[in-house]
Design a protein around this nucleic acid. Structure first.
Lengths: 240, 240
DNA sequence: CGGATGATTGAAGCAAGTCAAAGTACGTGG
DNA sequence: CCACGTACTTTGACTTGCTTCAATCATCCG
């Protein structure tokens, strides 16, 4: 069931990670101090389709994606599961549960991945640094809010091409934000999952990828995508 | 141009306001202390269509909606403006600009409204209470992240009925969250704006309202909506 | 190498968009 | 306070684009 090959994909460097400021505060600046290891469980491997945490599970901390990708889904059981969100390297998972007792949705690895985990209870013990920790957390949350407001463009997207363009542009800027290649990357979720996330038929996703490719805006093969004419793609997305 | 009538609609009580914890810290607990008045500009009136702040305007603080409603839109000029978000009484505006120099989008009143403004720079002077202030801010941000994750259901909504049901259920839970009537309320934005926000034609919004009403799930006249069968509406929305 | 899952392509049906027009609510000025 | 104009809402007929169903092809992984 578990497959530990291919944990060697695009990996985000610590300085580009959403946890970086928090890690610094915890002692990462000095590298490998004991206090760090007590707070951050570093580079834990999570295999494809493995559950990171489930809905209603007790909140135990937030996570940073180091490599691979994760998806947030509604419902635990049936095939009607809806993808609410997904995360690429450098992004934080579990922020929405910060002031809740439990996690709100199931999060699973959409490919073989590695994460860092930050136990909040332990970190709160670092009293004198707590105020800086809070500042970093506020920063991370504000970033997330900003990102989601961009994603809300998708709510109003009228055509399939429009939707896909917004999706790709948003994805690109997220890769860039974490210091990863922004014009050539591997899709963090399958086309089928993209269809689910965007509320379109999987067939329409395939057709629309082809349509955009025929226009020369992108090149795509399987999960690999290259943005060729970002300007025009942005125009199509309406995000100039 | 300015119309100062009808500022007497549904108004959120302080304890149900997103700023409440922050106000408490600033001294609101003792009511009307001088420190409060230096931090929170209370109940400022904003007329319909008045701009609260514009994109690229210098960040000066966050706002709480006391009465009325506001909408966040892209672009300053043309008629192709896209509604990204909207806010009802008790909700905070400007959180996405917290660690930015400027506001990201234009926010305008969608009806005659009143707000409280919290100047962050002044509040930061309240040093010993700053840590509690940060905690409250983290709370508010986590709430916002959670809300937006619910809204992301709209990204994948397949049919017009599905979209509108999610919209109404989400709206209802937001009213409830701030202690306002959750089954009978006034739409914070026009049907035309709802259409813009949801990415549908205004005609489809009208037709879909009627369709849901014919099923007996809601009653609606002009901007007034009453949710009759919330259970079934939730089922339609897929949020059980 | 083989089974399963994911991706692509084609043909037909249907839901939502567009265009057009009438009806309604609302704000302004008389 | 009422009358008018403007903007919003509703309704109908037609068109378009997406979904659905079905089948083939590619890719992943044991």
């Amino acid at each position: 069931m578990t497959n530990n090959k291919e944990h060697d994909k695009a990996e985000v460097e610590c300085p580009s990670c959403g946890l970086y400021n928090l890690c610094q505060l915890a002692g990462l600046g000095d590298a490998n101090t004991q206090v760090l290891d007590s707070v951050v469980n570093r580079r834990k491997k999570i295999s494809k389709n493995q559950i990171l945490f489930d809905a209603n599970e007790k909140f135990r901390g937030i996570f940073a994606v180091k490599s691979g990708a994760f998806k947030t889904i509604t419902h635990s059981t049936d095939e009607t599961a809806q993808i609410l969100d997904f995360n690429i390297p450098g992004e934080l998972i579990g922020l929405d549960a910060l002031n809740a007792e439990t996690y709100l949705h199931r999060v699973i690895a959409s490919e073989n991945s590695s994460i860092c985990e930050m136990d909040l209870e332990v970190l709160k013990k670092l009293d004198d640094k707590f105020i800086d920790f809070q500042s970093s957390l506020i920063l991370a949350l504000a970033n997330k809010v900003r990102l989601e407001q961009h994603q809300s463009l998708l709510i109003s997207a009228k055509s399939a091409e429009h939707r896909l363009a917004i999706f790709l542009i948003g994805l690109s800027s997220r890769f860039q934000q974490h210091g990863l290649p922004a014009t050539q990357f591997k899709l963090p979720i399958s086309r089928k999952d993209i269809a689910n996330y965007l509320g379109m038929a999987a067939e329409t996703v395939a057709r629309t990828f082809k349509a955009i490719e025929d226009k020369g805006l992108i090149e795509s093969h399987a999960r690999n995508v290259k943005l060729v004419k970002i300007e025009e793609l942005s125009k199509l997305a309406g995000t100039n």
